[in-house]
Amino acid sequence: MNIGEIARRAGVSRSTVSYALSGKRPVAAGTRKRIQDVIDELGYRPNATARALKEGRTRTIGLVIPPAGNRLTHMQLDFVASVVDAAAAADLDVLLSPSGGHHDRSFERLVSESRVDGVILMEIRLEDARVGRLMQAGLPFVGIGHTMDDQAMCWIDIDYAGLIGHTVRHLADLGHRKVALISRSPELVAAGYGPAIRAREGFAAAVGERGIEGVEVPCGDDARSGQESIEGLLRAHPDLTAVTTVNEAALPGIQRALADAGLTVPSDFSVTGVAGRLWTEDFRPPLTAADVPALEMGEKAVALLVERIAAPQTPPRHILLAPAISLRASTGAAPARRTAGGAARA
């Protein structure tokens, strides 16, 4: 039994339950009684980890996000929202801090000035200096994502290599013989951004396994870049019949470019990938994809960090998620091969 279940039964938010238990903020008498009635009924007792966390110095955790572009993607915002919500349920505040480039001073202040009891890192590179800095400082931290040396840190991540491999095999099973991977921006790929690199590895392994032709293109995190990627692919590869992607922000542009080219999804062209549910359901027709459980990942990251703060000497835990591919309407049997002008031929 946990705070979330108490909140559900009492008809309140998790943060309200947390405030009722801690007394950190006032809660209306009627609401407090309703919460207490549920607690009494369930026999709830705060666990040892939560009690240990109350001994922390700041009751604040840091959430570090290196800006990948001019704005956060919807998936990144989902991560932020879930971390903030889960932290409130544990009676913790969240200090949001960017890192990378001219933001590195902000990250260093977070680490060196005892502002937080622990840190959650997002958007991790295969070789990430922030990880080394946190380990040097002895500050508890958890990654949403992981470095190449994944045993040294505590993390939760998506199996991008395995999932992209599954999407390629799905397309091959449908008869597609030439498939493209629309990746992330050239800057992120060059920096060793974990999801992009692992997606590339899974893509290469799957096309080799199935004996089909694969093309990879970088793509900025926006609709215009997605449109330009498809336009360029169709010019260079008129026989291309499907794409898979880890770039959810590019999906609206992918859809627009295919429509402009007179290609209907999925009868003329199939699209799949790994993306947040919002993007998969907004795609037309709905996208066959592995839905990234961003909300669950943020919540689990906070739970892992609470454990690290309470017991920093315990071995780091690793959680690799592989959500099922949801078969929707954006993938279908490969069409007849197209000519350079786009018309189908037998």
Rank of each mutant, 00 (worst) to 15 (best):
E216T: 15
Y193E: 11
E228G: 03
Y193N: 08
L234D: 01
S225D: 11
V207P: 04
D239H: 03
V246E: 04
E231W: 04
A206F: 07
E213N: 05
E201R: 06
A204R: 15
T245K: 04
A199G: 13
I212P: 02
L233A: 00
P218S: 12
A223R: 11
A205K: 12
L240S: 03
V243D: 02
E201L: 05
A242T: 04
A223Y: 04
A206W: 07
D239P: 01
V189Q: 08
E213D: 12
R210F: 06
D222M: 09
P238N: 09
R224V: 15
G211C: 13
V246M: 11
G232D: 03
P238T: 07
S225Q: 10
D239I: 08
T241C: 05
R200E: 13
T245D: 03
R235A: 05
A242P: 00
A191G: 04
A196V: 02
A236S: 12
R200Y: 04
G232L: 05
G194D: 06
V217R: 14
P218M: 13
S229L: 06
A206T: 13
E213Y: 02
C219M: 13
E228I: 07
V207N: 06
T241P: 00
R210S: 14
S229M: 05
V246I: 15
L233I: 04
D221M: 11
T244N: 03
A190H: 03
G211K: 06
P218V: 15
L240Y: 01
A236C: 05
A196C: 01
A236L: 06
G220Q: 12
G192E: 08
R235V: 13
L234I: 07
A205L: 15
T244M: 09
A204L: 12
L234V: 01
G214N: 14
G202E: 09
R198H: 10
R198N: 10
G226M: 11
Y193T: 06
